[in-house]
């Protein structure tokens, strides 16, 4: 029997096409990209070997430092925001709204499926200050605050990016964590309540510890996405003003496709890949340790 389920020809036929496409389009280019880091040039002008010059440049490039720290700050803040607010929503769905939560869940989830470009353009208008004020500044003006040129300065533009990316993804984390809360056995919560646990201690000693696995899974999923942020900053701020909201992904894009330096672009992409790898490994390590406890 095993021989039929182990038929090499059938395995090759079923697995072959997917493995071939995956290897040629994703795995080979990674190694090719590694090779490109020792060159400078582009597809039109040809390539020239330049040793480790790209790596020296990477270490000393202030733009890379800025982009690195923007990426790190963005990833940490948005990941925390997504998981914390998502958890808040999930608790609301599961313990407060109960059966009626489906309507709110469906509504709050909607921005998740919308194209980032459309949302970014909408946010440009919501936070606009010229030629006339957008909705946010109108609100501020009505409560007596001077309207702010949100997208005109790095600090405030960063805030708008953060708000937008949390707004458009929180419904997703709400549902994700909610599905984890459903796994908490009702009788445990119920018996704790009968034993006199009030809301806060019930949450602190029963619900929170039991939601850690799903919170952890959300954290992994979130950081894997936020560290590669591209669409939302590209469409919302274009990396500006200046280069104040430029993550590594966008700096790589500009280096390769606007300044036509494929070698240096690959070097920046390598840094980004190593960051993703490290985050994955650290999280993986951490999750294994937790399981052995």
């Amino acid at each position: 029997m095993k021989s039929v389920l182990g038929d090499p020809k059938a395995i090759a036929l079923l697995l072959g096409p997917a493995l071939l496409v995956y290897t040629l389009v994703m795995l080979v280019p990674i190694f090719w990209s590694l090779g490109l880091t020792f060159f400078t040039g582009n597809v039109l002008q040809g390539f020239e070997f330049n040793g480790i010059a790209n790596f020296e440049k990477l270490v000393n490039d202030k733009a890379v430092h800025d982009a690195f720290w923007f990426t790190v700050n963005y990833a940490i803040i948005v990941t925390i925001g997504q998981v914390v607010f998502g958890y808040g929503l999930a608790l609301l769905y599961h313990f407060v709204l109960r059966k009626s939560s489906v309507v709110v869940r469906t509504l709050v989830f909607f921005p998740v499926v919308l194209p980032t470009v459309a949302i970014s353009l909408l946010y440009q208008k919501l936070f606009q200050s010229a030629p006339n004020d957008g909705l946010v500044n109108e609100l501020l003006f009505n409560v007596g605050v001077t309207p702010i040129d949100w997208l005109g300065a790095g600090g405030t533009a960063f805030i708008v990016v953060i708000i937008m990316d949390i707004w458009r993804s929180v419904g997703f984390y709400g549902v994700l964590i909610f599905s984890g809360l459903l796994d908490i056995p009702d009788d445990i919560v119920e018996s704790a309540r009968i034993d006199g646990a009030r809301s806060w201690s019930l949450f602190r000693y029963i619900i929170l510890p039991m939601s850690l696995p799903i919170l952890f899974a959300s954290l992994i999923f979130s950081i894997n996405g936020t560290i590669k942020v591209f669409d939302s900053v590209f469409a919302l701020t274009g990396g500006g003003p200046g280069s104040s909201t430029t993550p590594l992904t966008l700096y790589m894009y500009r280096t390769a496709f606007q300044f036509s330096d494929y070698g240096y672009g690959s070097t920046i992409a390598l840094l980004l890949t190593i960051m993703s790898l490290l985050v994955t490994l650290v999280i993986f390590q951490q999750s294994r340790r937790d399981n052995t406890k």
Partner: peptide, 22 residues
């Protein structure tokens, strides 16, 4: 092989785009 496929989830588009463009 399954693990090899799985690791692809982590790969940023930026590291594969230039060789593909070429």
């Amino acid at each position: 092989v399954l693990l090899t496929f799985l690791s692809g989830i982590m790969i940023p588009g930026q590291i594969i785009v230039l060789p593909l463009f070429i």
